[in-house]
Design a protein around this nucleic acid. Structure first.
Length: 300
DNA sequence: CGGGTTACCTGACGGC
DNA sequence: TGCCGTCAGGTAACCC
């Protein structure tokens, strides 16, 4: 579900709801495992701890307690809400001393929930491997990121979606940022000029900021912590618009094709594959779509 | 080693 | 109606 803007929106919503620094009375989790769950005895450790602040690190949400951090990743379909009717796929319940209850729901269970002692946060491998955050790295990416780009011999779409390079961009905002920068998603990263790269980085920042301003994108079921939906989907220029007229040139129709295993949208006119000097043969690898049989038969 | 592919899950939707 | 295949906003274990 959520890319950086949606995670930021959820975090801000929780921040508002928890601004009175609530204390945890009890924590429970369902029998269905997420990508990661704390052990039962670890759960007990955060009872009576106060929630001091909410932070976002890449697509992770951090709850700062007295001695621990709660680490939450929403995966594709995770959401936090306060109270309300029980729902199918509720998996974490954090009961507060003021009587309210924070509930984490996640139908596909690709999300993650963990409890980390404060002094272990800095060395947590999940956070250590992350690249810079476009919204916090001002004004522009450092030399290090440019070096990584030059070493990357695959599509620029793969590069910007890899959280080791920079964080926050997922499948939707990758297509949107590439379109706004006029760059073909299959363009090889190391072939990008520095100018083109800076333009792309700028558009990534802009599109993420605009999406946050619009409350995120609600495609199917994304909800803010307060329950309201986002509206940035109304400003999509290419995502999900296959066959429709491009808003940029008003002539060409948006095309789509799976790249890095996910559907990708672009305009052939506004996003030409720019050929580099001395090599006018550009191989646009055909991406095959394997996907035959899904092994969903052995579900429990 | 870097980069592509697949698995992890459930639900919604379209075609037949 | 109902069954089946496909696809969905993320990550990481694999494999070559």
């Amino acid at each position: 579900m959520p890319e950086l803007p949606e995670v930021e929106i959820v975090k801000r919503g929780l921040e508002l709801l928890l601004k009175n620094e609530s204390v945890i009375r009890e924590v429970r989790q369902s029998d269905f495992s997420l990508r990661h769950n704390p052990q039962a005895k670890t759960l007990k450790k955060i009872v009576n701890q106060r929630i001091h602040s909410l932070q976002r690190r890449a697509k992770y949400i951090l709850f700062e307690l007295d001695d621990y951090y709660l680490l939450s990743h929403l995966g594709m379909t995770g959401s936090w809400r306060v109270g309300g009717q029980p729902q199918v796929h509720d998996h974490i319940w954090v009961q507060l001393h003021d009587g309210r209850e924070l509930i984490y729901r996640d139908p596909r269970r690709f999300g993650l929930f963990d409890i980390i002692p404060k002094n272990k946060l800095a060395t947590d491998p999940r956070l250590l491997s992350l690249g810079p955050d476009p919204l916090l790295t001002m004004p522009f990416p450092h030399q290090d990121l440019l070096q990584r780009l030059k070493r990357h011999h695959a599509s620029i779409k793969a590069f910007i979606m890899d959280q080791k390079n920079l964080v926050g961009v997922g499948n939707i905002y990758a297509s949107e940022a590439l379109h706004r920068a006029g760059i073909h998603p299959l363009q090889l990263s190391h072939e990008l000029s520095e100018k083109a790269w800076l333009s792309l980085y700028k558009q990534i920042v802009l599109v993420l900021e605009k999406a946050i301003a619009a409350g995120g994108s609600t495609i199917r079921d994304f909800r803010q912590a307060g329950g309201s939906q986002g509206y940035f989907q109304d400003q999509f220029l290419v995502y999900g618009r296959e066959g429709e007229l491009c808003h940029g040139c008003s002539k060409e129709r948006i095309v789509s094709q799976p790249i890095v295993g996910r559907n990708t949208f672009w305009c052939k006119v506004c996003q030409p594959y720019s050929k580099i000097k001395g090599r006018n043969k550009v191989r646009v690898k055909s991406v095959k779509r394997p996907r035959k049989k899904t092994a969903r038969a052995n579900r429990t």
